[in-house]
Write a protein that binds this DNA or RNA. Structure first.
Lengths: 238, 238
DNA sequence: AATATCTAAAATGTATACAATCTTATTTTA
DNA sequence: TAAAATAAGATTGTATACATTTTAGATATT
């Protein structure tokens, strides 16, 4: 007579389901399996992930609020293509914000947090060496996320996260797969400065690092149409 | 509950409809007609604006992405209540970002843009003198938005806008209606520095200004439940 | 009277139906 | 043949139905 408890495993999943779909789509974009400009149709995605358009719509809306996807009225969503002319602005924004952030973070990090960062950078190094580009890029982002968190200012960390994600999209659009930017070298130096509690050096290294990434980009126009089913059915991510 | 849809006049402009609802809800929050913590139920809002829950849901989702509203699973949306402990972080974030922005903007503004700003500040002054608090606060935001745009860096202006909107919510939560912060005095000085092309002075004034606003806040806990229909049916603006 | 349990109402979560709009292929016309 | 008109298909826009969950009130129990 009481409530019939359904299989809770399926229900638990539905809570995270949206998040999983969100990450999956973002990952595919960063892996350059979906080029900028590629259209994301609601029904196709719904079939792929086994949910209705309602859920997909929410995910696309979130991605559009983050600037990863563009939604035009009656046209639907497509991967954001950043014009060459906008690229430098994003990197300048990152220099300003992440420069200020790492200055605030310098000396604040505990030994535990520093160790955590170093092991993350180790992971990053492995991904880059094993040529798994997408994973490497996301891990690199994670390093920047963690540093942002160390500053102890949640709103600032939040806007930093946005810019970092958005920049990742730009990098995946303009960086050659071969030229993987050796980010982990720079990252190690950054963490050293953090540990030493040297704000000036930390800021300087961060600005140089962001500048360095910017200069690995080849700013030329390109595009490549793709089929949604192929991309999501075959996960190239070991 | 009568299902009478109260179509005011914005029935056919379905393209802008969502935007209008968004602004209407945000305005009501800034006017303190909806206190932090107040619940926003989808069906009630749908009836008020004469649309289905589908549209309301999109608006609430957008507001939640901007941090104005909090959505909890199975609980729906409620106006974000910022803990006292978080307030200073938001203002610090604004000092960092808007400080950098106005530095970039100094000397870049055309005569036309400067004049535009001055007339906007005039408008602001009138609103404050006529005690229309909500309008005054929004106009004040607009001044900061415009300055952010002058820096010529869209991504930075974007994160600035987010923080400014979010801070407006905080101000409406913690500032006494009487103490209206005389923002337009500071703003005039800011524009003078912009026109003179003095980055150091402009930055200094901006930091002081933001600090000044922060110090008009009375950081104590409060709350007040309200009825949605009353609020939206009677527009206290004018 | 206080607490616990159960039931009804209300709100959100999701899917789906149908309308409006855009896209594409085909046919018509000059 | 090329351009324009048109019709068929695909895609998004919106409303609504139904399921699930929460909330609140009533009833029962100690």
């Amino acid at each position: 007579m009481a409530k019939v408890s359904k299989n809770s495993s399926a229900e638990k999943r539905s809570a995270h389901q949206e998040q999983l779909i969100y990450e999956r789509i973002f990952d595919v974009i960063l892996d350059q399996k979906l080029a900028p400009g590629a259209r994301l149709t609601e029904e196709a995605l719904g079939e792929i992930f086994g949910v209705s358009r309602t859920i997909i719509r929410r995910v696309l809306l979130r991605l559009s609020h983050e600037g990863v996807v563009e939604i035009k009225p009656n046209r639907g969503a497509s991967v954001t293509s950043t014009p060459v002319s906008d690229v430098d602005q994003y990197f300048e924004a990152r220099r300003v914000i992440e420069g200020a952030i790492i200055r605030m973070a310098a000396g604040r990090a505990s030994d535990y947090e520093i160790n955590d960062l170093r092991s993350l950078i180790g992971e990053e190094k492995r991904y880059y060496e094993s040529q798994t580009r997408g994973k490497g890029l996301r891990t690199s982002n994670e390093v920047h996320f963690r540093i942002a968190a160390l500053a102890g200012n949640e709103p600032l960390a939040d806007v930093a996260r946005q810019l970092i994600s958005r920049t990742a999209l730009i990098i995946s659009q303009y960086q050659d797969a071969s030229q993987s930017a050796c980010a982990y070298c720079d990252h190690t130096a950054l963490v050293d400065a953090l540990e030493a509690g040297d704000p000036d050096k930390a800021e300087h290294l961060m600005v140089e690092h962001i500048d360095h990434i910017r200069h690995t980009l080849h700013l030329s126009e390109e595009s490549a149409p793709i089929d949604l089913f192929d991309i999501f059915s075959d996960d190239g991510e070991a």
